[in-house]
Design a protein around this nucleic acid. Sequence first.
DNA 1: AATGAATGAGGTTTCATTCAT
DNA 2: TATGAATGAAACCTCATTCAT
Lengths: 216, 216, 216, 216
Amino acid sequence: MAPRIVDKEARRLELVRAAARVFAREGFRGARIADVATEAGLGKGTVYEYFRSKEELFFAVFEWSSRRMESEIAATVETLESAGVRLLALGREAVRQGVENLELYGLTLEFWAAAGTGVCEGRFREAFKELYRELRALVQGIIEDGQARGELRQDVPAEHVAGTLVGALDALVLQHWFDRSLDPLASAQGFLETLIRGMVNNNTESPASTGDQQTL
Amino acid sequence: MAPRIVDKEARRLELVRAAARVFAREGFRGARIADVATEAGLGKGTVYEYFRSKEELFFAVFEWSSRRMESEIAATVETLESAGVRLLALGREAVRQGVENLELYGLTLEFWAAAGTGVCEGRFREAFKELYRELRALVQGIIEDGQARGELRQDVPAEHVAGTLVGALDALVLQHWFDRSLDPLASAQGFLETLIRGMVNNNTESPASTGDQQTL
Amino acid sequence: MAPRIVDKEARRLELVRAAARVFAREGFRGARIADVATEAGLGKGTVYEYFRSKEELFFAVFEWSSRRMESEIAATVETLESAGVRLLALGREAVRQGVENLELYGLTLEFWAAAGTGVCEGRFREAFKELYRELRALVQGIIEDGQARGELRQDVPAEHVAGTLVGALDALVLQHWFDRSLDPLASAQGFLETLIRGMVNNNTESPASTGDQQTL
Amino acid sequence: MAPRIVDKEARRLELVRAAARVFAREGFRGARIADVATEAGLGKGTVYEYFRSKEELFFAVFEWSSRRMESEIAATVETLESAGVRLLALGREAVRQGVENLELYGLTLEFWAAAGTGVCEGRFREAFKELYRELRALVQGIIEDGQARGELRQDVPAEHVAGTLVGALDALVLQHWFDRSLDPLASAQGFLETLIRGMVNNNTESPASTGDQQTL
DNA sequence: AATGAATGAGGTTTCATTCAT
DNA sequence: TATGAATGAAACCTCATTCAT
């Protein structure tokens, strides 16, 4: 009665991960469905049992990776208290993720391009809009929290700083991608300490002390 | 015969500009040589009189646009004095360029992707490495200048701040690309003011006063 | 065990009927085995328990439908006497069949194509040769019977008229298939009356009188 | 200035003729674009310079062949006078065309199938509707002309006879396609003489005399 | 007996590039 | 120098068929 027993959900995930590696390596254009199938140890046709098209698969990779990224970052700052500490932790985590999965960073560039002019343009753009909105909200929340606690100055434009900060961390990994001699973790640390110094309420208290408590 | 040389150069530029529009609109993958030819009002074969291949043409567009971008930014900060003012001006200019040529912003995404995994990967990566190196040097120079003048604190990690700042400005336009409701100019301004506040030497002197002198 | 055999036969027929609907709707090329399985409420693999291949299934549909068609037509003329009446009845029945099962008429077109250039070409051609031979023989028998009874002229070329008549009825449904505003029953009736008028022995006796006895 | 000089119209026709041969031989499904290209002595890609798709090419073949068929038939009956003679001539020509180009007859079967359930269904159906409408009108005109001249009986249902006759001729070639031992020309002749005998006004005058004057 | 997951052969189509004019 | 007709490599995707359960 029953056909071959497989966990379709698990196999789908396998395919997404295999596709992530191939897309990262070859780009959307350069990746062939056959490559993905081979990478997953399956037949070409099988890919189409799980994804309607190459675009669909690509988007699934995007969702998988952005969801993972977001939740890991959110988890990082969950338990901390001081806004300064949380921002530093967030920055470190964002950069760490990029650097530690550098072989997958090409994916981000492909996703951006897809959102720009490429495949499923609208869909990707919408998803990125939402993703960045959430990331900004996370950072903005930390800043506003710090303002409420009296830790940060009231005149810090939380929304603007949040938006720029989110982008800045992205961009650090980007530059590291181009130039491996750069140390994005150090840059994030140095930069954030400076930025935080511009945000803390009591300027006589060195913000560096906040940072010093962090183990890098 | 001599004027022919001028013509060739001019026509080459025409082609680069036409290609820029098409690549921005359709992406590298989606753009067809025939489209570029049509956009330039020329025959398909003619493109190959000026560029060996699609990749070559794409790279020419990259060089043309990045060179233009860089020189415009450099020009902006050339004549100013105070580091704070110069940084604000640079930020505004970088963002302004992106926003005012938003229809060409897709190009940047395509270039990144090309450097990531795509066409001429190595060549693009090398070029971006150099480009970002120069932009960082520009900003780093401004900061170090400010430190030398006593305007900025000695403990500001110029290199790290420079790297992150350059990326942050890029990223503001990126987010605007995804979400037009964001105002990258305002974000840049608010963010820079905060950052500069963390860099200036005499904390009793509000850095906002520096910013206030700027007409946005 | 014994009832199993009945089940198998019944299920095979179910599949043939389901396939008939799908092939008629989608054509041989457009029909997928999966569609047939779904239409029959069975699993895809099950189809292969009953038919070696898509072609085999297609041919089974042909045999089922042509056998049914032929026997229904033969039954119609079995009990009648006069050649004119029998020809009119046969014509009406042939057209009625086509029109009443118009949703299956696509099958005929597919079968013809299969016999022409397509799948199992030889097999279909042979089967059609036999089918038309039998239909012609049926009509030819009616005519020759009429001649033997003195009802029809001796100089009517029975074989030629039979062949053409058989085809003509087919073709009426074909035209109706293309243009629903045509009334193939009326055409068959009007045409047959004219043709019969050319065949009856005593031209003073109106063949229409023969037709008038028919209820349309 | 000028590229390779070719007569695009002529080459298009070459391709249509090559495609006709291949489609007739292999059917729409079995024919590969590569086959057509080879048959025309061109490269695969070239086919797509002239036809947007396989379907488009197929339809072009249909238009070419049906237009040719129609005009040849129309030309045949143009100069004749008597309705009987014209009908005999038309029948002979219709059959002759089919038989003399028997290697292309598979096309007709493919076209019918395409109109039934296949490719471009609607388009083909519409085209066939129009084609048959015109052929019927041609025959109907001949009959009505004969009625006006007093040659044919007033009570002949011109429209119904025309429709059936057109189809009958089609069907004769179809049967010949299945069974080469049949002589469709003889059948057409014998059938038409009988039919005409049922249509002529003065039954004392044998319609066969009309037919006898024809050289078969 | 029944199923449906897996498979890969095969064909359409696109488009960068060439080259005769 | 400019052109665009010709080309064929390359890749997506479909779906008949198999076979483990």
